[in-house]
Design a protein around this nucleic acid. Structure first.
Length: 549
DNA sequence: CGGGTTTGACCAGCGC
DNA sequence: GCGCTGGTCAAACCCG
């Protein structure tokens, strides 16, 4: 396994710059720092220019300069501290990884080779990873592959065709057309001229009793089909918030477990979204960013992803014992669709505590398939959860107790807590929320470490995803780099303690973030939505009025 | 009556 | 080239 211990923060910085963002799209905090640098460098000049017309003015100018310098120094110190923390963290990662590698190397290697998945598990896992693999029998995966279940979030990464510097929306509009059926004439044909850019899809697997996930958007069902190998029909939805919105989603019940709802998002909204829809879009866009950042080298990847608006979603009833992985891009009909799966289904071992599983198909053949990645946010407990409007709710109640039943909440919320040892804090806090009833499994951290450290793409993607979810306000300039993520994590230190304590969940952090000066464009202030309203997105994948072709 | 859903038909991509 | 499959269209239908 390659551990990028060489990947210093500087390297990450380079990655950041090469990967994406133009300077003006950087994180507000970074912008702040950058903008203040010159002031620090040339304080005298400003003073001179101020002109000592009056002693008061001069003194005021000096005082202001002093403040600016002070602030700059403080920021620099913070930055240095962040970098130091990051290095420390890396060292810890490395040691943990090596330690773990010595233990389970052979087993893990074999497992990963077999499944072509890299699993990152945070929290307790009732069954060792090797068993997890067993939980996902090949037949099952194959079946799901056959089903072609994939969700998508796609965007066009190339801007060469656009004569002007296109914003993400424009890119999206162009890109979306590529996915249209050629022979069909709709207003979408206008955008059909775009290149068939590699499409990223985001697949959300969640246990849901409702026909669809409530993602905050309005959808119109435009088709339904029986897919091979799945008795449940697949419903096709189109975003109706804006007439020309290219976003589509597919909804289908899992054949193996009808309680699992598989929703695939594809496309980017080219219109403002309701607040209730921003969180999900951020997540899916970041996930898609993760995919594409790993599958191509376009510097626009993360930038584009950062511009996405949100789709919000809710899910429920994570009590079922199966966990599936849809990690192969081939599961969709077109290999041009890299697919990232957010698996919010439950742990196969119902007795095990909730955990987070990040799986990444890192052994893809880049010539044939883009990478496909699966993020599994798993809970084994039978609680209804929803993630709407940036609020995470528990049994439809605001999630504000310690009965943490959703790993993504744990992870994200604790990331906010992360200081000197983010990962350990994440883990320990996670454990605390689970009543400390089960000791941590070393391999969970190791596995997480392994994934993060072994795959730079995953690093950037994870950063993008988390930063997006954290809602730091850099939605318009998501660098999608680990460094940025780390910075954001560290900036969590700046949050009032309550922000890291309240609910201890991502949603709480999201809710707090806007109050942070850096949060800007995203607001997660609406109350949680109820579970999906069948009115706007009523296509019921569960209704078995199957249409036969 | 407007908007959403249903559903048969059409089209394209892919594998053989 | 053919058949299969996924994805989409659009007319008919439904509903508030």
């Amino acid at each position: 396994m390659q551990f990028p211990s060489q990947t210093s923060s500087h390297q990450l910085k380079e990655d950041n710059t090469t990967q994406s963002s133009p300077p003006d799209e950087q994180h507000p905090r970074q912008q702040e720092i950058l903008m203040q640098e010159p002031a620090l460098a040339t304080p005298e000049r400003s003073t001179v220019e101020a002109g000592p017309k009056e002693g008061d003015e001069l003194e005021n100018a000096k005082a202001e300069m002093g403040e600016v310098i002070e602030e700059n120094q403080r920021l620099k110190m913070r930055l240095n501290r962040i970098l130091n923390d990051y290095r420390t963290l890396q060292m810890q990662f490395q040691s943990i990884v090596e330690e773990e590698k010595a233990k389970n190397d052979g087993e893990d290697e074999e497992a990963m080779e077999e499944s072509e998945l890299v699993s990152l598990s945070l929290g307790r896992i009732g069954i060792p990873r090797s068993n997890e693999k067993g939980k996902v029998p090949k037949t099952l995966k194959e079946e799901e592959d056959k089903e072609g279940l994939s969700l998508g979030l796609e965007w066009k990464l190339e801007t060469s065709k656009s004569g002007s510097p296109s914003n993400s929306v424009e890119e999206v509009v162009k890109e979306e057309g590529g996915g249209e059926s050629k022979g069909q004439k709709t207003n979408r044909d206008e955008i059909g001229e775009q290149n068939p850019a590699k499409k990223a899809r985001v697949c959300v697997r969640a246990r849901c009793d409702t026909p669809t996930l409530n993602d905050g958007c309005q959808w119109r069902k435009y088709g339904q089909k029986i897919s091979k190998g799945n008795p449940c029909p697949r419903a096709y939805y189109r975003c109706t918030v804006a007439p020309s919105c290219p976003v589509r989603k597919q909804v289908q019940r899992c054949a193996q477990d009808m309680s699992i709802l598989i929703t695939t998002y594809e496309g980017i909204h080219n219109h403002p979204l309701p607040l209730s829809a921003t969180a999900m879009a951020s997540t899916t866009s970041a996930a898609a960013s993760m995919l594409l950042s790993g599958s191509r080298t376009s510097p626009n990847i993360t930038t584009t992803a950062a511009d996405l608006h949100g789709i919000n979603f809710s899910l429920s009833d994570s009590s079922q014992p199966n966990q599936y992985y849809l990690s192969h891009p081939s599961l969709s009909s077109s290999p041009s669709h890299p697919t990232i799966t957010l698996d919010l289904t439950s742990n196969p071992s119902s007795s095990s505590p909730p955990f987070v599983k990040f799986t990444s198909n890192s052994n893809y053949n880049p010539h044939r398939y883009p990478p496909s990645t699966s993020l599994s946010f798993t809970s084994s407990q039978s609680n209804t959860t929803s993630w709407t409007n940036g609020f995470f709710t528990y049994n439809n109640q605001p999630y504000n107790n310690n009965r943490n039943t959703n790993a993504n909440v744990n992870v994200l919320g604790n990331i906010n807590l992360g200081k000197q040892q983010p990962m350990e804090n994440i883990y320990s806090s996670f454990m605390q929320r689970n009543n400390n009833s089960i000791p941590p499994l070393p391999d969970t951290i190791a596995a997480a470490t392994k994934v993060i450290t072994a795959d730079p793409n995953f690093q950037s993607a994870l950063a993008a995803a988390l930063s997006s979810v954290i809602g730091s306000g850099s939605i318009q300039g998501n660098q999608g780099t680990v460094e940025n993520l780390i910075q954001k994590i560290k900036w969590g230190e700046l949050l009032p303690p309550s922000s890291s304590k309240v609910n201890g969940c991502a949603s709480s952090f999201l809710n707090k973030s806007p109050a942070n000066s850096q949060a800007g464009s995203l607001m997660f202030l609406q109350p949680p939505l109820p579970l999906s309203s069948p009115k706007s997105a009523s296509g019921s994948p569960g209704d078995h009025r199957d249409k036969k072709n």
